[in-house]
Amino acid sequence: MTILATEGLTRRFPRVTALDQLTVTVGPGVTGLVGANGAGKSTLIKILLGLLEPSAGRAQVLGMDTATKGAEIRRIVGYMPEHDCLPPDLSATEFTVHMAQMSGLPRTAARERAADVLRHVGLYEERYRAMGGYSTGMKQRVKLAQALVHDPRLVLLDEPTNGLDPQGRDEMLALIRRIGSEFGISVLVTSHLLGELERVCDHVIVIDGGKLLRSSAIGEFTQQTQTVTVEVEEGQDALAARLGELGETVTPHGRMLLVHVRAPETFDVLRDAVCELDLCLVRLEQGRQRIEDVFREPVNV
């Protein structure tokens, strides 16, 4: 089943080409759309909602053409924008009920759905307070709630983890995972961090400068991200040298070392090297692949 598909999608603005011959297909589940700022993510979302006309090419969402069926698409698709979009003088409940009605739900149904959805995103007593006093985390939850309130078949989430602290980020990612699996709503989520999408997505699409860089299932990506980040208090150079001698590939990255995992033994080698050099190990973690890493690697995968 295809949730959305684009074919040679191009959008040119007077100064820049935001999308350049983009052809992708997205299936059910959670799909990550990764790209640096200005890669064309938001432009793609606007086209998918039928709010912007492509200069060339076509796009289909849930089997409907975006150029002709915009209103029908927007009826069963939810959208969470990247920017702030909440009037500060309304409470989360009032706002979510109103947005449900704007999607065509009758008033009583809108009330029920709003209460349900706000509970699901984790807003309880505070939902009766004016949103002006909310923290960024709470605002992000309301933004997500208004995108889900009409029980869409697909939600487009534009940078939902923006501005959140690490804990809030984890909670938001867990919520996105739940939307995709438990709620049975397909998700297209954008981010400029591949590492965080890796944890929740079934499929990842990487675009840069409006061009498709890669589109593949998450399994293929994790194979690519076999690096370990090592941070030691002192003696980083000594460790790098030792690992080099032992035949590992090491790249210094600021205060950290990125060690390529060629086989499970690499972890043992690393552990032993740290012990032998008697270093103070601060951090050892599975490499979070960042968007730049994808650009560095050959695209022929």
Binding site: A71, R75, H98, Q101, M102, S103, G104, L105, P106, R107, A109, R113, D116, H120, H150, D151, R178, E182, F183, G184
Partner: peptide, 23 residues
């Protein structure tokens, strides 16, 4: 109770416009 899907009525643009006007 988990997530419940909505399968009730989805009214048209007219309803939404009226809701916006009242709001």
């Amino acid at each position: 109770i988990g997530y419940r899907h909505y399968d009730g009525a989805r009214l048209g643009r007219g309803h939404a416009t009226a809701a916006l006007a009242v709001h």
